[in-house]
């Protein structure tokens, strides 16, 4: 279980996250929705250790993540697909996937997981020798997801995986997220595409300028008037 308690994160003098608490239980898909600048990415970065929180705690199965050096967090079973994909453009698809497994030592299992990733994303297999920077946006998103899966995470954080993709590809990506979850990986999903996110989520939180204002099941939030008006286009 991922548990965030009274988390505060600042950029210099500006407090972007103003004390939020939420949790993601094992096996769930939980989504965090909110407008541009609400603090979604900031929250994700704090969980993965890229930002040091000013206050509060982040625990994964009881281990305090904020006390760990940032590069040790993925080894605890928490991987992130960052906003904007951030694949290593000057390395091949294969090398990117190998980097995803950087924290692991179990060589044989890595091979098997690579095969699984290629089953999930056949297009990556076709392009395994291609430089990641020359992939299309959708392919880069798949690579970013495959790369995170190579860490064999128990919980996967996805920051706006549908950003900039065609409607058809968005459907495919959401379908794959459900598939990953069905195979036993817990999901924390940040999305602008609130309809889609609420549709697949067990539970959801609404983040507004650094505060969590609403939390409920995905189903109920889909019908919530405030959410409808602000995030689902009325």
């Amino acid at each position: 279980m991922l548990k965030i308690t009274d988390l505060k994160v600042s950029y210099g003098m500006i407090e972007a996250i103003k004390g939020i608490s939420f949790e993601v239980n094992d096996g769930e898909i939980v989504t965090l929705i909110g407008a541009n600048g609400a603090g979604k990415t900031t929250t994700m970065h704090a969980i993965s250790g890229l930002l040091k929180p000013k206050a509060g705690s982040i625990t994964l199965n009881g281990t305090e993540l904020t006390k760990l050096p940032p590069h040790k967090i993925v080894g605890m079973g928490l991987a992130q697909v960052p906003e904007g994909r951030r694949v290593f453009a000057q390395q091949t698809v294969e090398e990117n996937l190998a980097l995803g497994a950087y924290s692991r030592k179990d060589k044989d299992a890595i091979e098997a997981d690579l095969a699984d990733v290629f089953t999930l994303f056949p297009r990556l297999l076709e392009r395994r020798k291609q430089m990641a920077g020359t992939l299309s946006g959708g392919e880069q998103q798949m690579l970013a997801m495959g790369r995170a899966l190579m860490a064999k995470p128990s919980i996967l954080l996805l920051d706006e995986p549908s950003m900039g993709l065609s409607p058809l590809l968005v459907s495919e990506i959401f379908h794959i997220i459900v598939e990953i979850n069905r195979k036993g990986t817990t999901i924390l999903l940040v999305e602008q595409n609130a309809i889609r996110a609420l549709d697949i989520a067990n539970r959801a939180y609404v983040l507004e300028t650094g505060h969590i204002t609403i939390s409920d099941t995905g189903e109920k939030l889909m019908k919530d008037e405030r959410v409808k008006e602000a995030y689902l286009g009325g």
Binding site: F88, Q91, L99, A151
Partner: peptide, 16 residues
Amino acid sequence: RACSEDKGASTLMGIN
């Protein structure tokens, strides 16, 4: 090489 491209993403991979 990963670090030379993107230190944040490298950290996410578990690279020190």
